[in-house]
Write a protein that binds this DNA or RNA. Structure first.
Lengths: 342, 342
DNA sequence: CTTTAGAATGGGAACGCTCCCAATATCTGA
DNA sequence: TCAGATATTGGGAGCGTTCCCATTCTAAAG
């Protein structure tokens, strides 16, 4: 009930003008204080701050926005369907890390999840949503029109995962390198017929991981057998189906480009009476929370998902506030976690 | 590229005043049209609408709010930590269904995910976030101060899951009844020592499921053995640990109050060489996406999660627009899905 | 043909903030 | 001691809406 009273008090002095009066200064001075303008006398600042805090004053975001300021609201757009959203741990972790960081830096998050497909309406809604200071977009398909639209608009934005066609701000991991590490490990452990299960076509991340797979195999002097490549759409069922397609071609290892598909693949193998890792080694990708406790525990590439989300927020805030001329990129390292499955 | 040009056009005529000029009417008339005021000549309305549409005009939400209108933004608050968020499929599905419905009814979603704990600051931030028309809250603990705060403020809100201490709007399932169905099924199949793994203490949902378990057992003439009750915190690890505690007391069945814990319990049982369902039957709760493909396929209670989310949105929109005097409640039915684990 | 109710429309004021410029207070050095 | 900076502060204007009241127009009634 105490908190209840506090929140009651919120309503008492709720405009900048009221705070100003209480503190014995002008509206402008209060504005300067809450916006960290250096041109304020230190004592005045303290006095104002005290009134602000004791009244639990929070500036009205709508008014602030209208007057040309910022709202402190960041948009998060993840254009994928339900099926992936709740199967891949990537997304909950990402969402969590983005929202947490936003809260830390005193921002709110507005959310758009995978519409079946962008229509003009959705994009318009996001872009012309005057409440947003900036936007974070993850898991794009190639040519997703939202990027061009965002790029053309003046709204600051950051991608999680890179984009080919335009110079944009992004954070990402080095997918090609990751694939290389995974495949090399498989090669080192003596595998000869290494398959791969790819994610979603039209996707940078899928393409890069596949490129890495191909390049590494080629470099090691192995021919790439297209029968050993199948698409799994990043979901467990897809991994199962892809494994079914690949299996007749006698792989002795599989690089599944995420853990959900690795699990699907293992499920298929198990049903065939194939032992993992003895007969076929499986490497996943993501280091999902279940990866360690799964039987067999998954050998997998650990993406710093939380770090990606946090950095995306920081980068976006930086773009919003500093308006730099150059685009910013940041590539994160990932590790191979060796466990039981390969 | 076409879409790009469209979004360019958005910027052209972007204020109500410009639209008014273009349509040859006043600001007020345009406002009436976009707010569906009946006092507008039909021809005028059409003309205005045409200009609005061809210019892809969207009213400025900040201005609208400031002038006393609505923003069309709904807050979604889910006060749980990461650990549950990405382990329980309940949340992604809920989030997805809420955001989708919001998009359908032309609303945006603003998001607060499980802070370690509410501080005054968080609540203030949510409540005094003048950008919100209303709030949906899910997965509360008892006495969560946000409910009292919300209740006291004038902000319309709807809970997903009921709340004991105050008359509030909510949607929910009948947890007690569900538990009854699950336990009765176990009894019917001849189980004699039925255990239960509860979720998070201080939680209506846990308490209700436990009450249902107790009542059903009592009604069937069985004594309730507290050794057969353990808390699992709604996570897989917790289910495993709870099963470890219960196991020495020779249960022949377990009602796990969600699927994640059911999986944890089965993992433990398997490690002990116990067969499921032959030696110990396991019933879960949620009908998680993995429940059907799990081995053994989970017998579980199917909650209409998507429906809960959608109805919560509809109810909230109704509250926002109609401002009814009475609180609204809606209880959804759930089904027992019989598969292999019991 | 005039009057009047009602339909349709227009425009001022206000919402709470930031930006900008002007005004005042304080300090510096010769 | 005084001009000229410099530090601090104050207040008007305006952001794009909605609400409310006033005004204009229309058509029916007398």
């Amino acid at each position: 009930m105490q908190k209840w009273e506090r929140s009651q008090k919120v309503a008492d002095l709720s405009t900048i003008e009221e705070i100003a009066k209480e503190a014995g200064v002008s509206r402008s001075t209060v504005s300067r204080v809450i916006n960290n303008d250096p041109n304020v006398n230190e004592q005045t600042r303290e006095r104002v701050l005290e009134v602000v805090n004791s009244n639990n004053y929070v500036p009205n975001r709508a008014a602030r926005k209208l007057a040309g300021g910022r709202t402190g609201v960041i948009g998060l757009v993840i254009p994928i369907g339900v099926s992936r959203l709740f199967v891949e741990p990537f997304f909950p972790i990402l969402i969590q890390s983005v929202t947490n960081r936003c809260n830390q830096v005193n921002r709110s998050v507005m959310f758009w999840l995978g519409e079946p497909e962008y229509e003009r309406r959705s994009i318009t809604q996001i872009l012309s949503n005057d409440l947003l200071d900036g936007v974070i977009v993850s898991s794009l398909k190639d040519q997703d029109p939202i990027v061009a639209a965002l790029h053309h608009s003046q709204i600051p934005f950051v991608l999680i995962g890179r984009y080919r066609d335009l110079p944009v701000n992004f954070v990402d991991i080095d997918n090609e390198k990751c694939a290389q590490v995974a495949v090399n490990y498989l090669l080192q452990t003596g595998r000869k017929r290494i398959a791969t299960i790819t994610g979603v076509a039209d996707t940078m991340v899928s393409r890069e991981r596949l490129d890495g797979y191909r390049a590494t195999l080629a470099k090691a002097g192995f021919a790439v057998d297209n029968n050993l490549i199948a698409e799994g759409g990043f979901v467990e069922e897809g991994g199962y189906a892809a494994m079914a397609k690949i299996f007749p071609h006698k792989p002795d290892a599989v690089f599944a480009t995420n853990d959900a598909m690795a699990v699907g693949a293992i499920r298929f193998l198990r049903e065939q009476g194939v032992r993992v890792p003895e007969d076929v080694g499986v490497v996943g990708f993501d280091d999902a929370p279940f990866a360690a406790s799964y039987k067999p525990a998954l050998t997998t590439i650990a993406q710093p998902i939380g770090e990606l989300g946090r950095r995306a927020v920081d980068m976006l805030v930086n773009v919003i506030e500093q308006q730099p001329n150059d685009v910013m990129n940041e590539i994160f390292a990932s590790d191979l976690i060796i466990r039981e499955s390969a």
